[in-house]
Design a protein around this nucleic acid. Structure first.
Lengths: 341, 341
DNA sequence: TTGTTTTACTAAAACGTTTTAGTATGTTTG
DNA sequence: CAAACATACTAAAACGTTTTAGTAAAACAA
C-alpha cells in the first residue's frame, strides 16, 4: 500500500522545531530570516536523508502558482507541432515547469473550451496556436494578467506576445528560387488566409511573381474543406485546369502530400517534370524521388524564443508591461524538385 | 488585473448558508445528506449564475487526487507516439482528466527521474512506454498502489497491466506475405531486442523463415547506435555484404527511412527491385514510389484499450487486484513495394 | 542603566475544498 | 408519552504548504 509521503511536519517534529523554520530553510530564506547556520544544515541534511519532496499541490494552493504551462496547438500529432512540443517540453522541465499539451483542431469552440478549462484550473501560462476567431478570448486572458505567447499566428490589432516565422520572406525566397531556376508558370496551392501565417505566405508568393513580371496561379482552399477529402478534389481540378504550370509551391505540408498523391494517381510524370516546393519539411522529403525542396521552420529557435518570452512573464506582476513580437527566419532547403529541369 | 475567481464561500455567504451545504449540493450529495429540494435548486442556480468552477487544486489537496495522468513515451515527436497521444488526450479530457506528455528517450535514468518527479507531484496514473531497465521502478509504483499501464512493451515476470500489439504475429504475417510473393532471400533489419516488442518482431520473422525452409538474414543494431549516425553505416554495410537479398523487412519506421536513404544514395534501382515492408505506417508511404507496404498499428484500438484499463484502476483501492494484459492485432497494409516483381 | 537593534525562532492564519461529527428540529413507533 | 428515527443543516478539522506578525533573548549604543 501507498506509504504517506513525508511532509514538512515530519521534519519539524523530528528536529523539534517549527514548520515555519523548516519552510524558511527549504525555501532558501535561511539567511534572510536569521536561521542559524547549524540549524539550517540540520534541516537540509535531514530533508535529504528522508528524501523530502514538497507537495506541489499544497504549494500551488498557497502560492496560486501551479508550475504548469499549457501548449495548445492545432493538432499535436502533426509533425511540425509534435517536434516543437518535444523541444518546448525539454526546456520547460529544465525550468521546473510541466507542460500539458492539447489540440484545438483550429476550432474556435474547442479553443475556448480548453482555455476556460485550464484557466480555471490555475495554469501559469499559455502557448497558443490560435484558431481564427479567438481574439477576444486571448484579449481576456491578457486582461486577467495571464501570460500568453502566440505561436505561428497572431491577430492584427491585438497587442500580444508572439513567435512567428517571417512567412512573407520565406515564401518570397522560395518563389524567387523557382523563378531563378527558369520556372515561369508557378502555381500556389494554399488554404484560405483567415490565419495570419497563410496571409504572409500568399503575399510573399505574389510579391515575387509581381516583381518578376509573371502571372500568379493560386488555389485557395477553405480550411474546412481541407480535412474532408473535398480539398483533394479541388487540388485535382486545379491541376487539370492549369495545364501550363511548370512549377507549384504548396503552402503547407499537408497540401504537399495531397498534391503528390494526386500526381501519383493521375499523372506520375508530373512529379519529375514540375518544379515543386513544400512549406514545412518532412523527414521523407530527402528520400523521395525526386527529393523535395522545402521551407523548413527553425524548430529549436522557435521553442527557445517561446520560453525566453514566457519565463519573464511568469515572474512579472503585470504581463502587459511590454510585449515581444518575435519573427524568426525559415530556411529554404534546396533539393532536386526545385532545380531547373 | 486578475479578478479573484468565485469560491464556494461566495455562494455560501450570498445564500446565508454554510459552505458544507454548498459543497454537498455541488457534489451531488444533496439527497444523501438531506438537503431540501428548494435549497438545492437555489444553490445550483446561483452557482450557475456566477459561473462557479471549483478550484481543482484545493480539491486535489483535500482528496489526494489530481485528475492528471502521465503519458510517457520514447519520443513524443515520433509519429507513432504522437498519434497515440492525440487520441489518448481526447478520451482523457472527455473523462475529466488532463494529460501530461513526456519523452524518456528510452533512457533508464531519464525514465526514473520523470517517474519520481511526477509521482511526488501526485499524478493519478501512468501510461508508460518503458525503457529496458526500469522494471524495478514500475514494480515500486505498483507496490505503492499507483495505476500503471505499460504500452508497446512489457517486462517478463512482472505482473503489470499492458497494451501491446501481437508483434510476433504481425511480423510473421508480413514475412509470410513476402514469401507468398516469391521472395526467397528476405533480410530483416532491426534493433537489438532488449525491448520486448523487438523480440516478438524478430521471432515472428524467424518463424516464418523457418517454416518455409528459407535462410534468415538479420541485422541487429544496438539501440544506442541507431540514433548516432552509426546505425546508418551498419545498415549500409549489411546491404553491401548481403548481395543476394531480394527483399527486406525493416522492424521500425526509423530503420525504413534509413534504409531508403541508403538505397537512394548507393543504388536507387534497389528501391524498385527489392521487396520492402516497413513496421509502422507513415503518411508518406502511400505516395512514395513505389508505395510502401507497412505493418500498421491500430492506434485507436490501442488508446481506447489503454483508457479502458486505466479508468477502473483510478477508482480502485487496490490496483493489484487484477491485471489486464491486452494484445491487439496489427494490420498489414499491402502496397506496391511487397508485390512480386 | 535603559533603550534600541539584531538574531533566532515560532504561532497561527491562509489558500479552497471535503468530510466527520455533530445539533436542532420534526415525525414515527411501541 | 418517551424513545427512536428521519430530516435539514452546520462547525470545525483536515489536506501541506507559505507567510505575516509576532516573541524572547542577546548584542549594542547612549
Amino acid at each position: 500500500m501507498k506509504k504517506k509521503p513525508v511532509s514538512i511536519r515530519n521534519i519539524a517534529d523530528e528536529l523539534k522545531i517549527s514548520v515555519t523554520t523548516v519552510s524558511f530553510v527549504l525555501n532558501g530564506k535561511a539567511k534572510e530570516k536569521h536561521i542559524s547556520k547549524e540549524l539550517t544544515k540540520k534541516v537540509l541534511d535531514y530533508a535529504k536523508l528522508i528524501n523530502y519532496k514538497p507537495n506541489q499541490i499544497a504549494q500551488s494552493l498557497r502560492t496560486g502558482k501551479s508550475k504548469i504551462l499549457v501548449f495548445m496547438v492545432e493538432d499535436i500529432s502533426n509533425n511540425f507541432f509534435a517536434k516543437l512540443a518535444r523541444i518546448f517540453e525539454d526546456i520547460a522541465y529544465d525550468k521546473g515547469y510541466k507542460v500539458i499539451f492539447c489540440s484545438n483542431e483550429n476550432d474556435d469552440e474547442k479553443s475556448n473550451e480548453l482555455i476556460t478549462l485550464f484557466n480555471f484550473r490555475q495554469v501559469d501560462g499559455f502557448v497558443i496556436v490560435p484558431s481564427p476567431g479567438i481574439k477576444d478570448t486571448i484579449e481576456n486572458l491578457i486582461k486577467d494578467n495571464i501570460p500568453v505567447v502566440l505561436l505561428d499566428r497572431f491577430f492584427d490589432g491585438l497587442d500580444c506576445n508572439s513567435v512567428v516565422i517571417d512567412n512573407e520572406k520565406a515564401s518570397f525566397d522560395a518563389t524567387q528560387h523557382l523563378i531563378d531556376n527558369q520556372f515561369k508558370n508557378i502555381g500556389f496551392v494554399t488554404i484560405a488566409p483567415d490565419q495570419s501565417q497563410m496571409e504572409g505566405r500568399l503575399s510573399g508568393y505574389i510579391k515575387a511573381i509581381d516583381e518578376n513580371g509573371l502571372k500568379p496561379h493560386t488555389l485557395e482552399i477553405p480550411y474546412d474543406q481541407v480535412y474532408k477529402g473535398k480539398g483533394k478534389e479541388l487540388v485535382r481540378k486545379f491541376f487539370e485546369e492549369e495545364k501550363d504550370l511548370d512549377a507549384v509551391f504548396f503552402a503547407t505540408n499537408y497540401l504537399t502530400q495531397t498534391g503528390l498523391e494526386i500526381f501519383k494517381e493521375n499523372n506520375p510524370s508530373l512529379i519529375n517534370d514540375l518544379g515543386i516546393i513544400s512549406f514545412d519539411d518532412n523527414d521523407m522529403y530527402k528520400i523521395y524521388s525526386p527529393t523535395i525542396t522545402s521551407v523548413s521552420q527553425p524548430l529549436n529557435d522557435i521553442s527557445t524564443k517561446l520560453m525566453e518570452i514566457m519565463l519573464p512573464l511568469l515572474k512579472k506582476k503585470d504581463v502587459t508591461e511590454t510585449t515581444h513580437k518575435v519573427m524568426v527566419n525559415a530556411e529554404l532547403i534546396i533539393r532536386q524538385s526545385s532545380l531547373s529541369k
